[in-house]
Nucleic acid binder design. Structure first.
Length: 486
DNA sequence: CGACGGGACGC
DNA sequence: CGACGGGACGC
C-alpha cells in the first residue's frame, strides 16, 4: 500500500465555498498565510463546474492552521456565502462527521524521565498558551514512562510547537484518544512477593497482635496510605513496611510522582491481612524517618482514624526507631541498621535546602553539608529541555549504592544545563546528560570521587553508546519498509 | 573495577 | 452545506 498521507501532517486545507470562486480568488485570499503549493478546485467530471469544494496545500502545518483560523467564515470575492475552512483529513480517512478538534491541538512527545510537567510546560509555552501538559506514568511505580502530551488552545500554536520544539521531543500530533473499552476486572490480583523474606527478624509469628486492636471493628482493610519523605527510594520504603509480615505490594499513589518541589510522597501499602496492616501502622505512624520527618499513615479506606500511637507519643524517644535494640521496640535488625545509615543522610537535604514545611523554595544558598555531599555545592537549578545540538554525557558509579533519584537530580542539576539523569536498573551506575560541556566538566571536577548521601561516587565522561556512535546521521526519511503484512 | 532506557492517555 | 485531480521516467 502506498502511503497517501499528507506531509507534513495538517498542512492541507479543506474548503467549502461558493461554486463561483475561481483559482485566482482563492490564491489572493490564501497566498499570504504561507507558501501555497497547490490549489485544487474539485469539479464535476461531466459539467466541469466547481462542486464548491477546494483543497489548498501549504508547505507547513502552521501555515495551514493560521489560514484556517483567519479565513474560516470569511466572505471572499463578493461570493454569496462565507467560506468554511478546515484542515483536511487524509485521503483514506475522508469525510468525518464528528470531527475531533483535538487532533489539531494535542502533541505527543518523548520526554526525559527526570523532567517534570512544570518544566515541560515552561518549555512549550513559548509557542503559545498551553492548555495542559501531562506525562504518562507507570500506574504501579508512578515513574514517568518517558512520554507525554501537550495541548494548546489554538491549532496554530500546536503547529508551531510541532515544527519548532526541540527535535529530541519527537513531537507528533497525538492520535485521538481511543474510545473507552470496558474491561473485565477491577484491578489485577496482587502478585505474591517473591524472594521470600529473609527480611524481618526479631519476632516470631506469635508476636503479631492478632485479634488485638487491629481487629477492632473487624472491618478489615489490609491497605494503608502512607506519606513519607520524598528522599526515600522505593526499596527503602519497602524495607520500612516490611517490619510486618504479609507485605504484598507498595506503590505510589496516582499523581504522587515525587519531584523537586514535592517533599512528600504518598504510597499505597498492601498487606495480606488487616492485622498486618494495623500492626505496621502502629509501629510506623508518627515515627520520624528520616529524622525530623514523621511518617504519617492512615487506612486506605479512609474511614479509619489513624492508629493512635504516634499521636500519643509524638517526638518522644519511644517513637523513634531504636537501632541498638536496647529499647522496647522490636525494630532492630542489621538490615534496618544499613537502612538507617542511608536514610540519616537525607536529613541533610532537609536542613540545607530549607525544605521545612513552609519554606519549600528558600534554598538559594550554597550547600555544604558533608552528610549530603562532601563538597560545597552551588544552589539548585531547574532542568533544561533537550537541545537540538550535541549533548554531553557523563557516566557515574556509586558504592555501595546509588543515592535516590531525588538527590542525584538535585546535585547534578546544580551545575546548570542538566538535561537528564537516568540510572541502570539493578546496577550502581547511570548516565547524566548536560546541554553544555562547561556544566559537564564542572560536575566532574566538583563531584568525582566525592561522597553523596554516604555513597562514594565516580563521575566521568561517558563512552558513546554502543551500536554506532552517531545514529543521528542516518536517514530520517521514512522508507516504506512496511511491506510485511500480518 | 562499572556501560546503555523508553513510545499513547483510568474522561 | 461537506471529501479527492493531474502529471507521467533522468543523471
Amino acid at each position: 500500500m502506498a502511503d497517501i498521507s499528507i506531509e507534513p501532517p495538517n498542512s492541507r486545507l479543506f474548503i467549502l465555498c461558493s461554486k463561483n470562486l475561481n483559482e485566482t480568488d482563492l490564491q489572493q485570499a490564501f497566498d499570504h498565510y504561507g507558501n501555497v503549493e497547490d490549489i485544487w478546485i474539485v469539479k464535476d467530471k461531466n459539467t466541469n463546474e466547481s462542486k464548491g469544494v477546494v483543497y489548498i496545500k501549504y508547505s507547513k502545518s502552521s501555515e495551514a492552521a493560521l489560514a484556517m483560523e483567519e479565513m474560516n467564515g470569511k466572505v471572499i470575492a463578493n461570493a454569496p456565502k462565507p467560506i468554511k475552512v478546515m484542515i483536511a483529513h487524509s485521503r483514506e480517512q475522508g469525510s468525518k462527521k464528528d470531527d475531533d478538534p483535538e487532533r489539531l491541538l494535542r502533541l505527543f512527545i518523548v520526554v526525559p524521565k527526570s523532567m517534570t510537567e512544570e518544566e515541560l510546560r515552561e518549555h512549550f509555552k513559548q509557542f503559545g498558551e498551553v492548555e495542559y501538559v501531562s506525562i504518562v506514568k507507570n500506574r504501579d511505580t508512578g515513574e514517568s514512562k518517558g512520554v507525554g502530551y501537550v495541548k494548546y488552545y489554538r491549532a496554530y500554536h500546536a503547529a508551531k510547537a510541532f515544527e519548532e520544539c526541540s527535535k529530541s521531543f519527537k513531537a507528533v500530533f497525538a492520535r485521538p484518544r481511543e474510545p473507552k473499552v470496558p474491561s473485565g476486572g477491577q484491578y489485577d490480583p496482587p502478585m505474591e512477593r517473591m524472594g521470600g523474606g529473609g527480611g524481618w527478624i526479631g519476632y516470631g509469628d506469635n508476636v503479631m497482635p492478632m485479634g488485638g486492636r487491629g481487629g477492632s471493628g473487624g472491618h478489615g482493610d489490609a491497605r494503608l496510605i502512607a506519606a513519607v519523605h520524598s528522599s526515600l527510594r522505593q526499596e527503602q520504603v519497602y524495607k520500612l513496611f516490611d517490619i510486618a509480615p504479609g507485605l504484598v505490594d507498595i506503590r505510589p499513589q496516582a499523581n504522587a510522582q515525587r519531584n523537586y518541589y514535592n517533599q512528600i510522597q504518598k504510597v499505597l501499602v498492601e498487606y495480606n491481612c488487616p492485622q498486618a496492616a494495623s500492626y505496621a501502622a502502629e509501629k510506623l505512624h508518627g515515627f520520624e524517618y528520616p529524622p525530623g520527618h514523621r511518617i504519617s499513615i492512615r487506612s486506605a479506606s479512609g474511614d479509619l482514624p489513624p492508629p493512635s500511637r504516634g499521636a500519643l507519643l509524638p517526638n518522644t524517644p519511644t517513637s523513634r526507631m531504636d537501632m541498638n535494640g536496647s529499647g522496647m521496640t522490636t525494630i532492630s535488625t542489621s538490615e534496618l541498621a544499613t537502612l538507617n545509615a542511608a536514610l540519616a543522610k537525607a536529613e541533610a537535604i532537609i536542613k540545607n535546602r530549607g525544605l521545612a514545611p513552609s519554606g519549600l523554595k528558600s534554598a538559594d544558598d550554597e550547600t555544604f553539608d558533608p552528610t549530603y555531599c562532601s563538597v560545597r555545592l552551588p544552589p539548585p537549578q531547574q532542568l533544561v529541555p533537550p537541545p537540538d545540538g550535541p549533548t554531553h554525557r557523563l557516566f557515574i558509579v556509586c558504592q555501595p549504592g546509588l543515592p535516590s533519584m531525588y538527590a542525584l537530580r538535585d546535585i547534578f542539576g546544580r551545575f546548570g544545563n542538566l538535561v537528564e539523569v537516568y540510572t541502570l536498573h539493578g546496577k550502581n551506575c547511570g548516565y547524566v546528560t548536560y546541554a553544555t560541556q562547561e556544566s559537564a566538566e564542572e560536575a566532574i571536577k566538583k563531584l568525582h570521587l566525592q561522597e553523596v548521601c554516604g555513597m562514594r561516587m565516580k563521575v566521568m565522561v561517558a563512552e558513546p553508546p554502543r551500536g554506532g556512535p552517531d545514529r543521528s546521521d542516518r536517514k530520517r526519511l521514512r522508507m516504506d519498509h512496511d511491506s510485511a503484512e500480518a
